[in-house]
């Protein structure tokens, strides 16, 4: 029944269909994201280099130049990392995320910029918060004798990390950009409102129930001279690092969005091409599959 000619004919038809689809795809190239201007690139790179230099100087001053503390000895050197990380994470990143979420929600200032900025600052903030907790535990082990204690600051920082992770989870599980932006912005704001309540509750939870706290205030060294300068430098260094990471995370978000858009465009064109060819794809009579049985 099935002659070689008719088989060849079918193959030729399929080939034609594929060719047509290729031409459809090639006709309009998928839109590419606008590249960053060279000037802007230079600026970002300059911030990155400045951050690296500042951190290198901070490490040098912190490890070799500054003297060990009278009470804490060499452990005091963690002071040149930990407070800076914590300040950037808890104040800069979280406040920026809340502010840009609020600006996105407010109709007058609604722009994709704020949504991306919020996402970027939360994700960068997670890195800083995690590092804050890790460096804090490293310090806590020799000083307090334990990696973790249910201290007020530690507990509320950990809760904040969980709130941040919730934000990322809800962002990752929504595909539609508008809904994602709205859900994320509301999540960030609702979580932000909770911060003072968490702070208070955890603080009272400790102070009202534990008479002596492991965080002895007299442990806090008085800072001055080279130690003070190094501490101040660490704030600048980690703030620069944060800004650099934030800008790059923002770029990734832009590229991701344009990739999603491009993929969607390809998929639509493929469907259009399929629909366009199906009308012309006619099988020779002897190859048509009977509808019922046979």
């Amino acid at each position: 029944m099935c002659s070689l000619e008719s088989l060849l004919e079918v193959m030729a038809t399929i080939d034609k269909a594929i060719d047509k689809r290729r031409t459809v795809m090639a006709a309009e190239p998928v839109t590419r994201p606008a590249p960053w201007s060279a000037r802007r690139n230079r600026w970002v790179r300059a911030i990155g280099v400045a951050a690296i230099l500042a951190i290198a100087l901070d490490v040098y001053l912190g490890l070799w130049v500054t003297p060990p503390d009278k009470v804490q000895g060499n452990l005091v050197r963690l002071l040149y990392i930990h407070p800076a990380l914590a300040t950037v994470a808890l104040y800069v990143a979280f406040a920026l995320a809340a502010l840009s979420s609020a600006l996105w929600l407010w109709r007058r200032t609604r722009a994709p910029f704020f949504d991306r900025l919020a996402a970027a600052s939360v994700e960068t903030g997670i890195v800083f918060i995690a590092l804050t907790i890790v460096t804090g535990s490293l310090w806590g082990r020799p000083v307090w004798g334990v990696y973790w204690t249910w201290d007020a600051t530690l507990t509320s920082t950990a809760l904040l990390l969980l709130l941040f992770l919730g934000y990322v989870a809800i962002r990752k599980s929504t595909a539609d950009p508008q809904r994602r932006a709205r859900r994320s912005a509301i999540t960030a704001l609702v979580a932000f409102m909770d911060v003072p309540l968490i702070q208070f509750s955890v603080l009272w939870w400790k102070t009202l129930h534990q008479k002596s706290t492991v965080l002895n205030p007299s442990l806090t060294p008085k800072i001055g001279g080279i130690m003070g300068a190094t501490l101040a430098l660490s704030f600048v260094a980690f703030l620069l690092l944060f800004v650099w990471m934030l800008i790059n995370r923002y770029r990734i978000e832009v590229l991701k969005e344009s990739l999603e858009g491009a993929e969607m465009e390809v998929a639509i064109r493929e469907r259009v091409a399929e629909a366009g060819t199906s009308g012309h794809l006619e099988l020779p009579a002897d190859l048509r599959v009977p509808v019922s049985g046979g």
């Binding site: 969980l162 919730g166 968490i198």
Partner: peptide, 21 residues
């Protein structure tokens, strides 16, 4: 949302911690 059963605890429980305390 597709993942609402798992997302709800992740979002709600940390926020509710002041009530627990």
């Amino acid at each position: 949302m597709r993942l609402r059963e798992t997302l709800l605890p992740l979002l709600f429980l940390p926020v509710a911690s002041p009530v627990l305390i």
